[in-house]
Design a binder for these strands. Structure first.
Length: 289
DNA sequence: CGTATTGTTTTGCC
DNA sequence: GGGCAAAACAATAC
């Protein structure tokens, strides 16, 4: 589940290793990854171009080329690996490309970039420079950016009819959070994910704002969360899975108050929270099983 | 073999 | 036309 911290970790790793390289070839074994865009079209625009920079927008990875950008979304199980031809041990260690490697770039200097995705929820798209704005226009602000303000978060939550969890997962409100970090941020802020948006108060929204930024910053610092599939481009695990407070900890003790972490379905997602620390009302009950 | 897993798009309702 | 809920997608682990 690559969310903002995982994609940012991949971006940083790629940036130092593929910038300035020329794309010599592109292989696409699952054209469906392009969601309708033509393989020949993408090839003609990408091959022989140079990688100028590696950027990120929300959970999207952006390879900036001379003419246009290559946008990669990792879906749920997407992985990006970089291997050197010179160091064959890397390719052997990764056993790449394998049957789940659906997209590859051959780069100058004997490097290869592999996009592996077992569940095939991932996507690749080539955009002309002028198409970039429209492609991302529905996304809300970057949670770690200056545009993201606590008053905006408060108003956004307050005006929604859904529960808090659904609001925070909504990429139009704030872009980059997924299931893991929403649960973690709610716990850090001591707010229930089941809280109806319209019932949030300013104090809770400010707390959430700080929690979202702090959780994401810390997760970036620890190079992401490796619960199952996530690996960085060198096949290393992240470190944040050891620091999770609620996600994946159902039935275990809350590290803040000692009560048992609950798990239920909220906004159609597996959701973890401490019903004591994250009580909606003092003395009240959670609405969800 | 049924269930659970989740990010985004699509569909359909209000 | 927008907000919202639910389905669809897809493969693997258990």
């Amino acid at each position: 589940m690559p969310e903002l911290p995982e994609v940012e970790t991949i971006r940083k790793s790629l940036s130092g290793r593929i910038c300035g390289r020329k794309i010599l070839n592109l292989k696409l074994t699952k054209p469906k990854l392009l969601r309708g865009q033509k393989v020949v079209e993408v090839k003609s625009r990408v091959i022989n171009s140079k990688i100028l920079a590696v950027d990120r927008r929300a959970k999207y990875l952006i390879l900036r080329l001379n003419k246009g950008i290559l946008v990669l979304h990792l879906g749920m199980t997407g992985q990006i690996f970089v291997a050197s031809e010179k160091k064959m041990e890397n390719r052997n260690a990764f056993k790449l490309p394998d049957k789940h490697t659906h997209f590859q770039l051959e780069l100058s200097g004997g490097k290869f970039l592999y996009f592996r995705d077992t569940r095939q929820f991932g996507r690749v798209r080539f955009l002309e420079n002028h198409e970039e704005h429209d492609y991302f226009k529905k996304l809300g602000p970057e949670p770690l950016g200056k545009q993201f303000k606590s008053d905006y978060l408060y108003q956004s939550i307050k005006k929604r009819k859904t529960v808090l969890k659904a609001v925070l997962l909504n990429q139009k409100v704030v872009a980059g959070l997924g299931n893991i970090y929403v649960d973690e941020a709610c716990h850090a802020a001591k707010v229930s994910p089941c809280l109806p948006g319209k019932r949030i108060n300013l104090r809770q929204a400010r707390s959430l704002y700080r929690a979202i930024r702090n959780v994401l910053q810390t997760a970036v610092k620890y190079r992401g969360t490796s619960i199952s599939d996530y690996r960085d481009p060198d096949n290393n695990q992240g470190g944040y899975q050891h620091r999770l407070r609620v996600y994946g900890r159902a039935g275990q003790k809350c590290k803040r108050c000692g009560s048992i972490i609950k798990k239920g379905v909220v906004a159609q997602r597996g959701t973890h929270w401490c019903a004591v620390c994250q009580k909606q009302i003092i003395g009240g009950n959670d609405e969800i099983k």
